[in-house]
Amino acid sequence: MSVRADAIGVDEPELLGLGVADDGSAEVPQDYDRVGRFDNGATQDRSGATVLLGHVDSRSGPAVFYRLRDLRAGDVIEVGLSDGTSARYAVARTEQVAKDRFPTFAVFGASADDVLRLVTCAGEFDRGARSYTDNLVVHAARV
């Protein structure tokens, strides 16, 4: 699978496969310049939700989803599927959420509709926790 969002200069020819880490949190790409897709492992998945995770920055500078914050309603994101076809999504809305009140099912939950959700970090960088306080979630719908 691949993802392309011209509005923010993202063009990733191959997505990493991500799952649930042993501590129950979401696995994230080890490479700051790669985008990962959450794979729930289902053999026959009827959910229409595609969830992509990417870093906002690395230790030294901006990372692949640094400009996610610049996506605006209507911006087009194209996802290349494993069967060679592609699906176009239009941004519907962006929300910034505190990690300690993360809307798990609004991001990772099943969806009857064909939707795309992109996630990166936002907010303040908490030095003690070595973690951003918030996540930025972009919701897009199939067009």
């Binding site: 979401a26 990772f108 990166t120 960088f125």
Partner: peptide, 25 residues
């Protein structure tokens, strides 16, 4: 199917607001 819990750790702090010195990185 299982879903992850809690926030997603998608940043290492280089561009974050506040003190993002070498220790953090």
């Amino acid at each position: 199917t299982e879903v992850p819990m809690g926030g997603v750790e998608t940043g290492a702090g280089a561009t974050g607001a506040g003190d993002t010195g070498a220790t953090v990185a």
